[in-house]
Design a protein around this nucleic acid. Structure first.
Lengths: 219, 219
DNA sequence: GCGTAATGTGACCAGCTGGTCATATTATGA
DNA sequence: TCATAATATGACCAGCTGGTCACATTACGC
């Protein structure tokens, strides 16, 4: 079931950390810019100033390099999600949603290349183990959303006359699409996030959450 | 503003229609399978059994071929949308949404390659005129959704104490995500559309629409 | 200082890419 | 019948790809 994690070779682990980081940073940028299949290892070695042969001493092949980077990505998402949820454990469900959405925005601001890779992986068929990668990545936000929803219902934040799985689906779709629209303005149907300053962006977040609350809280 | 439409050359128009269709079908499959940058014109000429040079007598270059196919795609979407909306002009807003969703499902069933290309274009940077293409394509569903929503409000189907632009955003995100989940089961968070038979799928559609109705109709 | 193991290197490989072009084939019209 | 124009063709091009490998350089233990 679990996708095999391809470790970098020991040679890579023995490298000075700053050299490791340089290589990872370059490869990350390359995959973000070109996706998996079109990413060029020649570019990677040129830009990180190592020899072609060296790259293959560090990673078995293109796939291993990509999977290693995606693995790091997953770890960051895990950490960010855990932290975001923990910081609002006491709040009501919709305040929690708002915090998650802000965490997503911060993630995009801080790790645009990771988000870019995510968007590409979503629909690029050649990505190795694509379905497993996407599933594993989305697991973390999602496995929080369900329990939070259930807790919210118990707490009385959320109406009980609505199918929970479907409601969670809609919430998830809304949050994810909001983040996509934030990162890709051409997906933004009518919210005008692109032209937003920080103030207007906060306002848009608040409004989305408010509509969800209006629709989902007990009447 | 308007993206230039690259016509195929006259040589292509003069071809027997079945030959035209053969070439288009092969190219469509190739772009669907490999996206823009990785799509291989050598594959296209091989599979459609024409010479490399002939392809370049029909289309100026790869970009022109791709844009022509996307243009056809857009026309189909236009037609399908118009028809779906016209057929439920009299219904209430949520019945209209349901019809649109079913139309989307039918579209995916009938034109899986077009939908595949759409998903790829969404996030593949190298696609020529990507933003314009996506914008032009999404325009049609979207320019219907807004007015339908407004009409629904006037008719009393929809509560008036909720920001319309944001509500439309959520509805759009939900419908689009539903279709993506239908086509790409790994995106389906908890609805189980993949394992569905036709009956269960209809049920899932009904449920999603019901939750939207519960949330958006006047209380 | 020396032998050995680990690491670094870039020329090289086959196979592919989008695109070109001289030439061969066919259709047209008088 | 024949000249001319339109179309079909595939060998060819430079440039790229992921990956390999024989060899040079460095590090390490004695």
């Amino acid at each position: 079931m679990n996708a095999s994690l391809p470790q970098p070779k020991n040679t890579f682990r023995n490298l000075p950390p700053e050299k490791q980081e340089r290589i990872i940073a370059v490869a990350l940028a390359e995959f973000a810019a070109s996706g998996y299949r079109s990413a060029s290892l020649n570019n990677v070695v040129k830009r990180s100033e190592i020899a072609k042969g060296s790259l293959y001493q560090y990673f078995a092949n293109k796939e291993a390099l990509f999977l290693h980077i995606f693995e790091r990505f997953t770890e960051v998402v895990k950490a960010v999600t855990r932290e975001a949820v923990a910081s609002v454990a006491a709040a009501d469900f919709f305040a929690q949603l708002e915090a998650i959405l802000f965490a997503g925005i911060r993630f995009i601001d801080e790790h645009p290349d990771y988000f870019q890779i995510y968007l590409r992986v979503l629909f690029e068929q050649e990505v190795p183990q694509r379905e497993a990668l996407v599933a594993r990545l989305r697991l973390f936000p999602l496995e929080y959303l369900g329990p939070l929803y259930a807790a919210g219902q118990r707490r009385g934040d959320i109406r009980t006359d609505v199918a929970p799985a479907t409601a969670v689906f809609i919430v998830d779709a809304t949050l994810e699409r909001f983040l996509q629209a934030y990162a890709r303005p051409y997906l933004d149907s009518g919210l005008g996030l692109a032209a937003s300053d920080a103030q207007q962006l906060r306002m848009a977040v608040t409004t989305v959450i408010k509509v969800l609350r209006d629709g989902l809280s007990p009447r």
